[in-house]
Amino acid sequence: MASNNNNGPTQFHPLPAVGSIVWVKFPYAVGQPGPYARPAIVKEVSPAYHRVKLVFGTSQKTEKLYPTEFVVKKTDPDFLQTGLSYDTKFDVSRIANVPYDDEWFEIHSPRPGKPPFTSPVIGQLPASYIPAIQLAVSHVK
């Protein structure tokens, strides 16, 4: 659900939970939405500022992982929970803190035959990935 105060971007409500996978225009420059939406994991939520801290995701070059990255594969038993369509890697060293509104986030089109999404949240990162996240975080300098 979205709400607008008529003075700018429309905010999405409610805020996502930590561990949610969202569709966001992840920034390449501070303060500017990126050129297109991509998946990201919600790392922190700030209700006071209606902002979320996100971990960068991409479906590109998932076979090449750096120490701060982990991959969610279509063949993983919990993959359906994620809402992702492709193998996707996440880089815990690439973090962005952005407003939870329609300037930054998009409502993603689901896989064919699935009901439409009503918020930028497409799924949830399963708890089975916690060890992979912890290992990746241990490599952040």
Rank of each mutant, 00 (worst) to 15 (best):
N7F: 14
T68H: 02
A17R: 14
F70S: 01
A17C: 05
F12I: 02
K73Q: 13
M1V: 08
T88M: 11
E106K: 12
G8R: 02
V52Y: 02
L54M: 10
I122M: 13
G57D: 03
W23L: 00
D76H: 15
P47W: 04
N7T: 12
R51M: 14
Y49D: 14
A40Y: 05
E103I: 01
D91L: 01
N6C: 11
T88P: 09
P67C: 03
I130A: 13
P35F: 01
A48T: 09
I107H: 09
P126R: 10
D101E: 12
K114I: 01
L15T: 02
A2K: 13
P47D: 02
Y100Q: 06
H139F: 14
H108P: 00
V92S: 07
Y100M: 07
A2I: 02
Q60S: 15
S138C: 09
P14G: 03
A40K: 09
L125W: 02
S138K: 10
K25Y: 01
F90T: 06
L135N: 11
K61A: 14
W23I: 00
E63G: 06
W104V: 04
P116S: 04
S119K: 03
S138D: 04
P120K: 10
K25G: 00
L54Q: 07
H50V: 01
D87V: 06
Q124L: 08
P110H: 05
D76L: 05
H13W: 11
P27N: 06
V98N: 06
S119L: 01
A96T: 01
G123R: 11
V72S: 08
T62C: 15
L135F: 12
S20N: 14
P14H: 06
V121K: 11
S85A: 13
A40C: 08
Q32M: 03
T68P: 07
W23C: 10
A2R: 11
L125S: 08
K43N: 13
H13T: 10
G31W: 09
P115A: 05
F90H: 11
T75N: 07
P112T: 08
D101H: 12
K73R: 15
P35M: 01
K74T: 15
D78Y: 11
Y129G: 09
N97M: 02
S20V: 03
R38W: 00
P9G: 15
Q134M: 12
P120S: 07
D87T: 07
H108E: 07
V98H: 08
V24Y: 06
K74F: 00
R94G: 00
A136S: 13
G123Q: 07
P99C: 04
E44V: 00
Q32D: 00
G8V: 11
E106Q: 12
Q32V: 14
K74V: 14
F105E: 04
E106F: 05
S3F: 15
D102N: 15
L65D: 05
I95K: 01
A136V: 09
Y86N: 15
A17Q: 13
G8K: 05
T88F: 09
K114Y: 12
N97L: 13
W104C: 06
A2L: 05
G19A: 03
P112M: 04
F117H: 15
F117I: 00
R111N: 11
K73C: 09
V55K: 05
G57Q: 09
N4K: 03
Q11W: 03
S3T: 13
D78K: 15
